[in-house]
Design a protein around this nucleic acid. Structure first.
Length: 780
DNA sequence: CAGTGAGCGAGCTTCCGCTTGACTT
């Protein structure tokens, strides 16, 4: 039996450390927190100094009992959870739950998983830092109080099952407010002047720094240039440089993987988890940009041997975010000499990104020579400006270039990277072509998952381990949707001066198209407005930063944690009580105007089944209101009267087939035909307003043919039970339930009774009872 | 993926931060 039991948070870490320590040590993992507040309302005894009731959740029972057993047998237990607030609390929970003794327990910490770092830690043990533990308790209790008092207010005043919290509610607020900025935005057009001088390889572009608001001004400018002389007025050359970005943290990895690889935030995390578990990279949930000394040495060795000494530059990066707790290293390859790895495609690509970013961070600056030429126009007072850039030394750009969200495509092509031909002051230039193009100002960009994470991190809200789950939560609650939306076409004017004549053209461009962007829903907007109105202090962007400051004071022993909570809770709870008493139900109602034919009032609001338009007054018995649900992409705050009227034109009867009506309507997943209580989607490009009877019949028969191909077996006992071929092989469709066929069963030989038994078992097992697609997303 | 949009009342929902699998129709 090993004399020592060492406990860390992550099993992959445990494995590595066990290798360093030899047979005197058993190294085990707690798999994160082992205890949490009980789910019920009595988790916190508020009058009794916020005393907490903790329990070991079901999925942690086994871990705890194994650790308990090992702890009993060991001579010394080493608590080696992370050195931050949560890590300290994990050690304390372990101490309490495992029933450890002070003289048989040591607390150690390290920031990097290397043998010397671990040995140093073992030589310098300490005791549990109760100030830090108290800071964590304050954090935990505050989050529970906020979440479990605010959410029920929403159930009463908005809709059941909604949620609110210190982190998620701010995430929703950011998205709602950004959407409103975009709606409020009016694009302003101005003419941009670009001239092309010279021919062939010597051709280059120059731009007028000013823009013209009116077409007449642009026209005048081009006209003035017809017979003008263009001369190089001044030439200025200066050296510039660019430095590499810091190594990855969780948030920057999520951002770059989103931009460069198109990964969602959760995909990045699950691929990174695999890389971490197979020992390829260091820990992936970190807010530190720091590299260990051993890593720095390895990077230096790789850079000098692969690229030479002049590419190496030692750098130490400082974290920018004030909320960072830096219990780990930055995300980096475990072994820098592995430039690529085995694994699936996404693992390879993410690893490559991490390798390049880490290596580049220790490389020298890229050096450029930037030339600015001012070009005089004989007939005008303004000058044209041409910029050129020549790279003198590539430095870190040899391996890695960070990308940015706000890259402006149309400005970029004649941007800094262009090369100018040799020019001399006073040189006369031959104009090839000059254009005045109407360009529109852009609204603020909608958030992507990754840019939302970036913003949250800047505000100090959330932690590396919660960015991805937070983004899922706000989508699961229906506050936010990640969607693709079509843009609109827009005309713009182009004036071209060529061969001494000005030509006018009208061109079109697509604008506002979005892919994988976060949009608020109506319920998201209503909940946000309710919280902003009644709990502004909690959804304030600075709330977290303020309480973090107080948690820090607790951690330093300057503030008593229950006093801090009391100061927070008393006014907060009063706000909750008074809101329950006085606030009206929030339904997000908005009046649209008057129905053009009947003169009845038209309004939109949120109902039990989502947002809808109403014609007529519900209070007026005689009016008998009509209702229609809003469609995807439509919101209460922005829908127009015209769009609302369109909603009443569908569903529309298009004909009869097999003695039953066929009706066309638009649902969540697009336009469809309903026939005999079955649904048939319309193929893309078919206009739902003009579907003919034969066309509808054809669509129905096509779908039936496809379904028949998937069918393997039916039962006489029950026509609602079928065995079908799905994407992952055969499965049973038991009424509305989709049932997996256990391994070893031949689908064709299954009897009806066996199917029923499998379906019953699935219905009973709460874990297996997952909704089959969207069909069961709503519970009764 | 429809239709619905009243009200009563029981019983349910909900937070953030640490972890890793199980699972996917």
């Amino acid at each position: 039996m090993a004399k020592n039991l060492l406990i860390v948070e992550s099993p992959a870490k445990a494995k590595t450390i066990e290798g360093y320590l030899g047979k005197d040590f058993t190294v085990k993992s707690s798999y994160g927190h082992i205890r949490d507040l009980v789910k019920s309302e009595d988790a916190i005894d508020i009058p009794n100094n916020f005393a907490q009731r903790y329990e070991v959740p079901a999925d942690k029972k086994q871990v705890v009992s194994e650790l308990k057993k090992l702890a009993k047998e060991a001579e010394m237990v080493w608590l080696a959870s992370d050195e931050d607030r949560e890590g300290e609390a994990i050690s304390w929970h372990l101490f309490e739950t495992l029933g450890l003794k002070n003289d048989k327990t040591k607390r150690i910490v390290f920031h990097e998983i290397t043998k010397p770092a671990i040995m140093r830690a073992i030589e310098n043990p300490r005791t549990i830092d109760y100030n830090l533990v108290n800071a964590q308790q304050a954090r935990r209790v505050l989050d529970r109080l906020v979440g479990f008092e605010l959410s029920p207010v929403l159930w009463k005043k908005v809709k059941p099952s909604l949620s609110a919290g210190r982190v998620q509610s701010v995430a929703v607020r950011l998205i709602v407010e950004r959407e409103r900025e975009i709606n409020k935005f009016t694009a302003e057009a101005a003419f941009r002047i670009v001239a092309i001088f010279g021919k062939g390889r010597d051709a280059f572009k120059a731009e007028l720094p000013e823009r013209f608001a009116e077409q007449a001004q642009a026209e005048k400018f081009l006209q003035d240039c017809i017979d003008a002389a263009f001369t190089v007025k001044s030439l200025e050359t200066r050296p510039t440089k660019r430095s590499p970005a810091a190594p990855f943290t969780t948030s920057t990895l999520q951002q770059e993987a989103s931009r460069k690889l198109g990964f969602s935030v959760s995909r990045t995390m699950s691929v990174a988890q695999k890389l971490y578990e197979s020992g390829k990279i260091t820990y992936m949930r970190t807010d530190s940009v720091n590299l260990s000394d051993t890593a720095l040495q390895a990077a230096q060795q790789q850079i000098t041997s692969a690229y030479g000494d002049k590419y190496y530059q030692h750098r130490k990066f400082k974290t920018k975010s004030a909320s960072a707790q830096e219990a780990h290293e930055a995300i980096r390859p475990t072994y820098f000499n592995e430039h690529t790895i085995d694994g699936d495609n996404s693992e390879k690509r993410l690893y490559e990104l991490i390798w390049k970013r880490s290596i580049a961070s220790q490389m020298s600056e890229a050096q450029f020579e930037k030339t600015t030429a001012k070009i005089d126009i004989s007939s005008r007072s303004e000058d044209l400006v041409a910029n050129g850039e020549v790279m003198k030394f590539d430095g870190f750009l040899k391996v890695y270039l960070e990308s940015h969200d706000d890259e402006d495509e149309d400005d970029n092509q004649d941007g800094d990277s262009a090369i100018l031909p040799p020019l001399t002051k006073g040189q006369l230039l031959a104009l090839q072509e000059m254009t005045a193009t109407e360009r529109y100002s852009r609204p603020p960009a909608r958030y992507t998952e990754a840019s939302l994470v970036k913003k949250l991190e800047e505000l100090g809200i959330g932690r590396p381990s919660t960015y991805a789950p937070t983004i899922s939560t706000v989508q699961n609650r229906g506050y936010v949707v990640k969607e693709e939306r079509e843009g609109k076409t827009r005309n713009y004017r182009v004036l071209t001066l060529k061969d001494k004549a000005v030509k006018h053209e009208q061109k079109t461009e697509n604008t506002g198209a979005e892919k994988n962007k976060l949009f608020p829903t109506d319920i998201g907007a209503v909940v946000n407005d309710f919280l902003v109105q009644h709990f502004n202090g909690i959804v304030d962007f600075h709330f977290t930063a303020n309480v973090e400051k107080q948690f820090d004071e607790i951690a330093q022993g300057l503030t008593e944690w229950t006093a801090m909570l009391k100061d927070f809770y008393t006014p907060f709870h009063e706000g909750v009580e008074s809101t329950i008493q006085t606030a009206e139900k929030a339904r997000g109602e908005r009046e649209l105007g008057v129905h053009p034919e009947s003169g009845k009032k038209m309004s939109v609001r949120i109902g039990r089944f989502g947002p809808f338009v109403q014609i007529g007054d519900s209070d007026n018995e005689e009016e008998k209101p009509q209702y229609a649900s809003l469609r995807t992409g439509q919101m209460i705050e922005t829908i127009t009267l015209e769009e609302a009227l369109e909603l009443f034109k569908l569903p529309k009867k298009v004909g009869v087939f097999e003695e039953k009506d066929m009706t066309v309507a638009i649902g969540k997943f697009g336009p469809y035909i309903r026939h005999n209580s079955a649904f048939y989607s319309l193929p893309k490009g078919v206009d739902p307003m003009s579907v003919s009877e034969p066309q509808a019949i054809e669509i129905i028969e096509e779908k039936r043919k496809k379904d028949a191909e998937k069918l393997i077996k039916t039962f006489d006992e029950n026509p609602d039970v079928k065995i079908l071929n799905g994407r992952w092989g055969p499965y049973i469709e038991f009424g509305k339930l989709n049932v997996k066929i256990p391994k070893g069963k031949e689908p064709l030989e299954l009897t009806y009774e066996e199917c029923k038994a499998l379906a019953d078992a699935m219905e009973k097992d709460p874990k297996a009872k997952k909704p089959a697609g969207k069909k069961f997303a709503k519970k009764k």
